[in-house]
Design a protein around this nucleic acid. Sequence first.
RNA 1: GGGUCGUUAGCUCAGCCGGUAGAGCAGUUGGCUUUUAACCAAUUGGUCGAGCGUUCGAAUCGCUCACGACCCA
Length: 504
Amino acid sequence: MSETQNNVPEVDENKIIAERRAKLNALREIGHSYPNTFRRENTSAELHGKYDGMSKEELAEAEPVRVKVAGRMMLRRIMGKASFATLQDYEGRIQIYVTRDELPEGFYNEQFKKWDLGDIVGAEGTLFKTNTGELSIHVDHIELITKSIRPLPDKFHGLQDQEVKYRQRYVDLIVNEESRETFIMRSKIVQHVRNFLIEKGFMEVETPMMHVIPGGATARPFNTHHNALDMPLYLRIAPELYLKRLVVGGFEKVFEINRSFRNEGLSTRHNPEFTMVEFYSAYTDYHQLMDYTEELLKELAELTVGSTTVPYQGQEFDFGKPFARLTMKDAILQYNPDVTAEQLDDLEAAREVAKSLHIKIEDSYGLGKVLTEIFEETVEEKLMDPTFITEYPAEVSPLARRNDKNPFITDRFELFIGGRELANGFNELNDAEDQAERFRAQVEAKEAGDDEAMHYDEDYITALEHGMPPTAGEGIGIDRLVMLFTDKPSIRDVLLFPHMRPAS
RNA sequence: GGGUCGUUAGCUCAGCCGGUAGAGCAGUUGGCUUUUAACCAAUUGGUCGAGCGUUCGAAUCGCUCACGACCCA
C-alpha cells in the first residue's frame, strides 16, 4: 500500500492572485500563451562589466549600443509617461527605462503598466546612463514573456521567514541575494574539489546508492524494497566498500562525490541525505591524505574567503599555519590536565576517568571505545583551528589498518575545524582475514543490541581475498565544508532543499 | 526525548495591562518623462497556526496539538 498523497490541493486564492489571474486571462484573450520566442543577447553582468566604466557623456556620444535582455521584474517606478524597472537575471540586475511614446500606440498604458512585479519580461533598446550614473537600457521594444500569478515577498526586506526559505527555496532564491550567493559558492567548492582530485590523478566513479548490505560506516540505514526481485534494499550510508572493490579491480585512484543517507535525527549539522567526497589512493598512506587535505582546504579558503583567516559565526579560524596534528591520547591529555597518560592505558582507570567526567560508558566498551568517548566529550568541540587527530583505536575503526608498532591503534585521522568533524581518513585494512574478524566483532555488537554496528559483507571479504594493494582513503563532508566557508550556522542553509517535516 | 521562543493581511512587522485588528510594502484608482526601497492622494484586503477551555467578552489568559528557530540530552 502506498501512502503517497495524490490529493489535488484546493486552489489557494487570495485577492492578489485572483487579480493576477484575471490579468492573465485578459492576456490569453489577445493571444498570450507563455511564448518561447524571445532570445536575449545580453546578460546584466556582461553589460555592467563592459559599460559601467564609461561615463554618461561617453556613452551618449558613442555609437548607440543596442542590447537585448530578459529577466524577472523586481522593481518598478512609474512616473506618468515614463518608467524605470529593474530586471533580474541569473547574474544580477539591470535597469530599464520605458517611455510611452517609444512603444506602439496604447502598449504602455494598456500592457506595460498592468504587468506585475515578478513577471518575466524581455526588453530591447540602447544603453545610456542616468543622471545618477546608473547603466540603463532605453527601451524601444518590450514584451511579457511569462506571467507570474503569485506575489513576491517584500521588495526591500526580502523573505525573512526561515521556514518558507527552506520549503520554497525558489522564492528565497528569487529575492535573497545572499542565498543565491551561498549556492553559487557551494557549486564552486564542489567544482574545486573535483578538479583538485582529477589533477592529482584520481578518476571519478559512481557506485550503487542502493545496497543489499549497508556498509562503510556505523549508522542506521533507510530501508526500501525491490518489488520485481522481492528483496530488501538499503540506501547507502557510505560508498566506501564499493570504492575499495574498485581499487581491488585495479582502479588505483578513485573518488566519488555524491549523496549518502542515514536514518537518524535532524539537527543543524545533520540532514538525512548529505554529500560526501570519498577518495582512495593505492600505494600511499594517510600522511599523504592529510597533506592533500591541508592543501585542498587552504585552496578552498583562498577561493571562498580570499584569505587564510576564515570567519565563522563570530569566530576566526587560521588556515595559514600548518594544520596541527596530534594523537587522540595527547589531545585528551592536553584538554584534561588532571588526567595522566597511565590512566588512559588501563581500561578500569579510563572508565573511572569517564565516570568522573559524567560520560556514559556501556559495559561492553573496551579501552578504545572509552578513550574515544572521552575524546568526543572533552576535546572535539574545542578544536577550532584546523586540527588532525590521529591514532584512533582499532575498536572504533573497523575498516582501518592497524598500526605496525601498536595494534591497539589504527593508521587513521580525523580533521576538526570549529569543533566539528570535517574529514575522516585512514590506511585501509587490506588483510581479508583481519577484516573478516572485525566484521564478526561488529556482528556480535549488533546482536548485543548495537543497531548501528556493521553487517558482515561476505562479498567485500571475497574482494579483499583477491588482494587490495595498500591503500589510503578519506571522506570529507561537503555540506559541513560549505557551511564553514559560507559562514552558515545550519546545514539547511547550504542544502537547496533541506528535509522538512510535511507542513500541516 | 526535555526546555525556551515564535506562528497576526500576499510580504516585513506592531498590537498581548482581555473590550471585538493596525502600519509600511505589494495590490486597486488617479497624478507625475532620469527614478532607484521613487514620490503624492485615495482605497481594497485578516477563521490573529489548529482545537478545547476560562470569561458577559479572547489575537491577548490557560491547556493540548501542528510546524519552525535556538539550547540541552
